[in-house]
Amino acid sequence: MATITPFLAGLVFGIGLIVSRMADPAKVQGFLDLAGAWDPSLAFVMAGALVVAAPAFAIARRRRVSIMRMPIALPASRDVDRRLVAGSTLFGIGWGLAGFCPAPALVVLGMGNAKAVAFVAAMLAGMAVFEWREQRRAIVGAVAD
C-alpha cells in the first residue's frame, strides 16, 4: 500500500494543529478552564474540522472503496457501554492534567520537546497495558469456552 498519501494526510492534520495552536497544551487547558479566564478557541477548531469532515463522511458512506481502491471501513459498533464511558473518562482526566491528547503530543514531539517525548512514551506504555489485558482476556475467554 502506498504510504505517501497517509503521510500527506498526517502532515496537513499536523499543520492544522500548529496553525490553530491546539498543539499548545496551555491553549487546550485554557479551553478546559471554564471557571477561569476561558479561551473558547478549541470549539472553533472543532467547528472548522467538522465543516470539512462531515461532508467527507457523507461521501464515504455512499462508497465502498476509496480513491486508492482501498475498502472504506466505517466503525459498525453502536453500543454505548461501560468500557466506552470509563475509558473516555480516564482519557479526559489525562487530557486535562497535561493538556495533551495523542495528535498534539506527536506534533510537539516533532519539535524535540522532552515533555512530549515523556508523554508519548507513557501513552505507548498505557496502550501496551491495554493490549496485554485484551490478549489475556481473549485467552481466558477461549479457555472458558
Binding site: M1, T5, P6, L8, A9, G10, L11, V12, F13, G14, I15, G16, L17, I18, V19, S20, R21, M22, S41, L42, F44, V45, M46, A47, G48, A49, L50, V51, V52, A53, P55, A56, F57, I59, A60, R63, S66, I67, M68, M70, I72
Partner: peptide
C-alpha cells in the same frame, strides 16, 4: 482556530477518501 480546524478536517478527509 477556524483555519487550523479546516486543515485538520482536510487531513481527515484525505485519509478517509483517498486511503
Amino acid at each position: 482556530a477556524l483555519g487550523g480546524g479546516l486543515l485538520i478536517g482536510i487531513g481527515v478527509a484525505m485519509l478517509l477518501l483517498v486511503d
